[in-house]
């Protein structure tokens, strides 16, 4: 266990150096991510200006929702499945397979390093948005504390689902279409387009049974104080179940996939 910790620590230092090299690229890339929440925030606040509130959300609450969403979205950033597909196609997995450690660990470590480096930029943008769209928050101490483990679980669930999707590239060269279906589902089912409670009930149920709600929407709702302690426990339970399922799936798919892997290139 301490060995694994040491590997994470080392990988973390390496990644910090790598990330620091591409500061400008990262800043620009993050800037491109703000457009989406601003668009949806504007659409919803426009409607609240017309009719007071929408589905129990006031203008200030929509602002709070999307500003929090930005933070959660940042913490939930994963290695994109396209990057994994690229590794399979270019034969880059060959080098990773030689290492005596599962490649997910290095990916998770580098992910976390990236998040820490980019966090100040995100916080600055959240502050900026908060001055333009004044949010109404009503925090609870317990929900902020509960947010930490819930967010970590949410990240792992999203990370593993993208990782598993990515290594489907071992079997098909058109895995990209599958990724896209998944991404479109994320738009509707993770609370991006609108808070989940504004969607039709059947869609809410689908989002709660599948892992989607637990990847982003749930931590956002929790931090906003929209979840009761009981529901938070149930949610954490769902997260545990999905994480367990995904770990098992990963082991299965990985073992079968590596057998099929015929390295291309050097």
């Amino acid at each position: 266990m301490s060995e694994l910790f040491e590997i994470y620590r080392k990988q973390f230092v390496i990644e910090l150096a790598v990330v620091a090299q591409y500061r400008v690229s990262i800043a620009l890339w993050i800037l491109s991510l703000v457009a989406e929440p601003i668009v949806y925030m504007t659409v919803w606040t426009t409607i609240t200006k017309q009719q007071g509130s929408v589905g129990g959300f006031t203008g200030g609450e929509f602002a709070a929702y999307y500003i929090t969403w930005m933070l959660v979205r940042h913490f939930a950033v994963t290695l994109s499945p396209d990057a994994l597909e690229w590794r399979v196609r270019q034969g880059e997995f060959s080098a990773l397979l030689l290492k005596p450690i599962h490649p997910v660990h290095t990916d998770i470590a580098s992910n976390i390093a990236y998040k820490l480096v980019a966090l100040p930029i995100i916080l600055a943008m959240m502050l900026g948005l908060a001055t333009i769209f004044p949010p109404t928050y009503n925090f609870h101490l317990w929900s902020i504390l509960a947010f930490i483990p819930v967010m970590f679980m949410a990240y792992l669930i999203r990370f593993l689902s993208h990782w598993i999707l990515g290594i489907l590239a071992f079997w098909t060269t058109r895995a990209n279409s599958i990724f896209q279906i998944f991404f479109v589902s994320e738009i509707f089912l993770t609370g991006r387009l609108a808070p989940l409670s504004l969607l039709p009930v059947p869609i809410q149920i689908v989002a709660s049974i599948l892992p989607f709600r637990w990847m982003i929407a749930f931590p956002v709702e929790l931090l906003l104080g929209k979840v009761t302690p009981e529901d938070a426990l149930v949610g954490f339970g769902m997260q545990t179940i999905w994480l367990g399922l995904e770990v098992m799936l990963l082991l299965l798919v990985w073992r079968a996939g590596v057998k099929r892997y015929a390295a291309v290139g050097a």
Binding site: L31, L33, I132
Partner: peptide, 22 residues
């Protein structure tokens, strides 16, 4: 290239009439 990525994400905003934005 990164500047172009920004353009693409900004273009998404065009799905709605610009009058709604601040």
């Amino acid at each position: 290239d990164n500047i172009l990525v920004i353009f693409e994400s900004m273009y998404e905003a065009g799905r709605w009439p610009v009058g709604i934005y601040p």
